[in-house]
């Protein structure tokens, strides 16, 4: 008989994989992987800040503060890029701010409460072992938002990735589409951090898109391959985690890393 915990873990992992598989190709095509990974630094900083403010009496739950800080961080990157910074420079500036915020908030949170750091720690390693119904609801909502936004605007986002200069010249509001993409990435970064942890979210955000954009010969294929990689990693990872009593995030991360390694080996072999 399958336990409820395992069932929830599987559902949580599948939802997370689905979310990642939708946005990862867009991050890869728009050369925003570094910016997306930077958002996970912001999640950690936001997590520390959220827990600290929660203990200091803030009316918002830590997860909302985490989301707000990550959103701020991602829009800062988007605006810096619009103002002529390279993606890497913009991501680096935002990462400095996140790192400083994480250090200060973490230090202060530890002074306020002995358990504060362990609460913030959940953003690093995730909570998929003890998934609550609320977490599944959050993940389902984020998946729905991601599907709707990408279905509505993927053509524009891909066209801008293809030819940003031409897109601007033709009248696309490139700035707003960049805001949209980065806001979506930050939402996904927070939700993946809740379920699988920020460390593994790095892999899920980067790998499916990086692999699929290198081997696909159409946009449809990119999303199909990305979904396959994320789901395979998610399902196999969840099963391994259950049987070996590992954190699911870690197992999913290992499986997708192995997929990525096999892919790189195969590509090198073909050359």
């Amino acid at each position: 008989m399958v336990s409820v915990f395992f069932l929830r873990m599987i559902i949580s992992t599948l939802l997370s994989s689905g979310i990642a598989s939708i946005v990862s190709p867009l991050a890869s095509l728009s050369r925003s992987i570094m910016a997306a990974l930077q958002m996970l630094h912001a999640v950690i900083a936001g997590g520390f800040l959220g827990v600290l403010l929660h203990y200091l009496g803030a009316p918002l739950p830590p997860v909302m503060i985490t989301l707000a800080f990550t959103l701020f961080s991602s829009l800062l990157v988007a605006e810096l890029v619009e103002r002529g910074f390279t993606q890497d420079s913009a991501a680096a500036i935002s990462a400095f701010i996140s790192s400083a915020t994480a250090s200060i908030s973490g230090y202060m949170a530890a002074k306020v409460s002995a358990t504060a750091l362990s609460e913030a720690w959940s953003f690093l390693v995730g909570s998929a072992v003890l998934v609550r119904i609320e977490d599944l609801f959050i993940l389902s909502s984020v998946l729905l938002i991601a599907v709707v936004l990408v279905a509505l605007f993927y053509k524009e986002l891909i066209f801008i990735s293809f030819d940003e200069e031409g897109a601007r010249a033709m009248g696309f509001h490139v700035r707003y589409y960049r805001y949209l993409l980065y806001a979506l990435l930050s939402l996904v970064a927070v939700s993946l951090s809740i379920s699988l942890g920020a460390i593994v979210a790095h892999i899920l955000l980067a790998a499916p898109g990086s692999i699929s954009t290198r081997i696909a010969s159409s946009i449809k294929q990119i999303f199909s391959i990305s979904l396959s990689i994320a789901l395979i990693g998610g399902i196999i990872g969840a099963i391994i985690a259950y049987h070996l009593a590992l954190p699911p995030g870690a197992a999913v991360g290992i499986v997708i890393t192995v997929c990525y390694g096999v892919f790189i080996y195969a590509v090198r072999g073909r050359r």
Partner: peptide, 17 residues
């Protein structure tokens, strides 16, 4: 106005038809 940018600014790795 129609605009044809320099081809160097176009990312041909995006697999568009």
């Amino acid at each position: 106005v129609g605009y044809v940018p320099q081809m160097i600014t176009v990312d041909t790795s995006v697999p568009l038809r």
